[in-house]
């Protein structure tokens, strides 16, 4: 005969584990998650267009991740996106003239912020601002530009090509 207490503890563990699983699904898996604050310092950068950059996207230097995007807000004075990045505290020697660009991992991959260190003697301070930024490359724009160039410059070429 099973002890009543053991059985009730077992049921308690079961229900608690079930509820914990539900909470984990809600908080960690779905979009409800409150952003967990990591140790580190923040820097901001302004972009004309962030493309598909999301919160929690990676921030890299030389391809190595050193932090994450914390928040992205739209500044309706300058019509720019303000990206706040959280950089791990051990990487506190970024030059003040570091530049930031938004790149894509692979052809269809996720977008991330790549930082390019400059040659300045002074370092970026917590809360500092990156001045040199390069927006995300929008594939549609590039294809449009390519087709436009082709159409504009292709008229003469076509005849040349067709002649022989």
């Amino acid at each position: 005969m099973m002890q009543k207490r053991t059985m009730e503890i077992g049921v308690g563990v079961f229900v608690a584990a079930g509820i914990a699983a539900l909470v984990m699904l809600a908080m960690k898996v779905s979009n409800l998650a409150a952003f967990t604050n990591q140790q580190g310092y923040e820097i901001t950068a302004r972009f004309e267009n962030i493309g598909g950059l999301k919160e929690r996207s990676a921030v890299t230097v030389a391809g190595v991740r050193i932090g994450r995007v914390k928040s992205i807000v739209f500044d309706d004075k300058d019509y720019e996106a303000v990206v706040t990045m959280n950089i791990e505290s051990q990487h506190d020697r970024l030059p003040a003239d570091t530049s930031a660009s938004i790149l894509t991992a692979g052809l269809l991959g996720e977008q991330y912020v790549a930082l390019e260190p400059g040659g300045d003697e002074a370092f970026l301070k917590p809360g500092g601002d990156i001045k040199l930024t390069q927006s995300a490359i929008i594939l549609e724009k590039m294809v449009g530009q390519f087709l436009f160039d082709k159409a504009a410059g292709g008229g003469g070429k076509k005849e040349e090509g067709a002649a022989p």
Binding site: F14, V15, A17, G18, I19, A20, A21, L22, M24, L25, V29
Partner: peptide, 8 residues
Amino acid sequence: LLAAMFSA
């Protein structure tokens, strides 16, 4: 509860 545990 079991399905939630399974997914988690």
